[in-house]
């Protein structure tokens, strides 16, 4: 509970004073800034409308004639709101932020790559190296075609991993398996997405380079 610097009322824990409607400008975590309970599963549309609603209430234009402290608080609150919305809007960055809030690091106790995924990464990376080294001609065209086919496969795995993450959010919020299981599961899911994302990026680069030559 903080005291509102404008009207001195004990004014709750959000971005705005409940009594005088002025911004508080306090540092809050991203969930609190948006007035939300910390939950992994968030409704994107509701999040967006809450962001706009709060944005209207604390916007610096509304306090242009207030004294300097209020104007500064409004700027701070607006920056915090925008940062919070951007962090929570994307499920991956929300998951990473969730770990950060709990003092967890994604890479801690989490260096093992699922063998089947590692195998795929190495296999495809070999193909990409081969593509980069091969001279123009039929062999290269065939290889390019093969890689394009695999790209579609990796893309659909990436999309699936993404959907699984959001599906798991609901389950993890219920926290059936306890905090440790949640953290481990969240780390694994986010790591899998990171490996697939890097692989996709490398495939796109290699294919773009091959198309240029």
């Amino acid at each position: 509970m903080v005291r509102c610097p404008s009207c001195a009322a004990p004014s709750g824990t959000g971005l705005v004073c409940e009594r005088c409607g002025r911004p508080l400008g306090e540092e809050l975590d991203c969930f609190a800034a948006l007035g939300l309970e910390p939950r992994l599963a968030l409704d994107g549309a509701a999040l967006e409308s809450r962001y706009h609603e709060l944005g209207r209430r604390i916007h610096p234009d509304r306090f242009a004639t207030d004294d300097a402290a209020v104007r500064a608080a409004s700027l701070r609150a607006m920056a915090l709101l925008t940062r919070s919305y951007r962090t929570l809007r994307d499920p991956i960055s929300r998951g990473l932020y969730w770990l950060e809030l709990r003092g967890e690091k994604l890479a801690e106790d989490n260096k093992t790559v699922p063998p089947e995924l590692a195998e795929m990464v190495f296999e495809i990376q070999e193909q990409l190296a081969e593509l980069g080294a091969s001279p123009a001609g039929n062999d290269r065209d065939r290889l390019r075609g093969e890689i394009e086919g695999r790209r579609a496969e990796v893309r659909s795995r990436f999309d699936r991993a993404h959907r699984e993450l959001e599906g798991n959010f609901v389950r993890w919020d219920r926290n059936a398996g306890g905090q440790d299981e949640l953290t481990a599961g969240l780390k694994q899911a986010l790591s899998k997405i990171a490996y697939l994302r890097t692989l996709l990026r490398d495939m796109d680069r290699a294919l773009a380079a091959a198309a240029e030559n």
Binding site: V113, K187, R201
Partner: peptide, 13 residues
């Protein structure tokens, strides 16, 4: 040993 850096998606063998 196959290990990965989930921060950037790098994989090392």
């Amino acid at each position: 040993g196959v290990v990965g850096a989930p921060e950037c998606g790098d994989v090392m063998k």
